[in-house]
Amino acid sequence: MLKNLSRLHTPDLLHALASMGHGDEIVLVDANYPAASLAQRLVCLYGANLPEIVDACLQLMPLDGFADQPALRMEVVGTPAQIPDIQQECQALIDLHEGTGRFTLGGIERQAFYSRSREAYAIVATGEQRPYGCIILKKGVILPS
């Protein structure tokens, strides 16, 4: 056991987050996503929903302040401007950890999301039941204080 970590900070998730470098991406996906067939590295956290995993990741990992869009959401097919509740919850967590208005979830078309996730450092499969519970986070740097 370690102090100050949540039950979601499993050895697999901690290893993935710690091993990622600046600019690497981690994909957090819902239960419908074909994570096992697309992942280079798969972290399974089926007992948690997407917002819990976003929170667990952003407690430890900064977003990339040098990237135009360090956080992306899968767009709703047919209505790409629609932002489902699940994605709004993720935006609220990004605001909480990174500062309100600093980073906005950008949209990425469904098939482009699938293609990009194949290149990601890791995919985290969650138990999220709501559709479009899929986001990509790009790791930033921690500057000396």
Rank of each mutant, 00 (worst) to 15 (best):
K3Q: 10
S6C: 05
H9K: 09
P11S: 12
D12V: 05
L13I: 06
L13G: 00
L13K: 04
A16R: 04
H22V: 13
D24T: 07
D24N: 15
E25S: 11
E25K: 14
V27Q: 02
V29T: 04
D30W: 01
A31T: 06
P34G: 04
P34L: 01
P34F: 04
A35Y: 01
S37K: 14
S37Y: 09
L38F: 07
R41C: 04
R41Q: 14
R41S: 09
L42E: 05
Y46C: 07
Y46Q: 13
A48S: 15
A48F: 13
P51N: 04
I53H: 09
I53Y: 08
V54Q: 03
D55E: 09
D55N: 14
D55F: 05
L58G: 01
L58F: 12
Q59A: 14
Q59H: 12
L60P: 00
M61Q: 07
M61E: 00
P62D: 03
P62M: 03
L63C: 09
L63M: 08
G65D: 15
F66P: 00
F66M: 12
F66W: 11
A67K: 11
A67G: 02
D68T: 11
Q69S: 11
Q69H: 14
A71E: 02
M74P: 01
T79E: 13
T79C: 10
Q82G: 00
I83H: 06
P84D: 10
D85H: 15
Q87W: 12
C90W: 03
A92V: 07
A92Y: 02
L93V: 05
I94E: 00
D95C: 10
D95Q: 10
D95N: 15
D95K: 09
E98M: 06
G99L: 03
G99E: 07
T100Y: 10
G101N: 07
F103N: 00
F103R: 07
F103T: 01
G106F: 05
G106T: 03
I108W: 05
R110S: 09
Y114F: 15
Y114S: 06
S115T: 15
R116T: 14
R116S: 08
R116V: 12
S117E: 08
S117G: 08
R118W: 12
A120C: 11
Y121G: 04
A122L: 08
V124A: 01
T126H: 09
G127R: 06
G127S: 05
P131G: 08
I136R: 02
L137S: 02
L137K: 02
K139I: 01
L143D: 08
P144I: 13
P144Q: 13
P144A: 15
P144E: 12
S145M: 12
S145L: 13
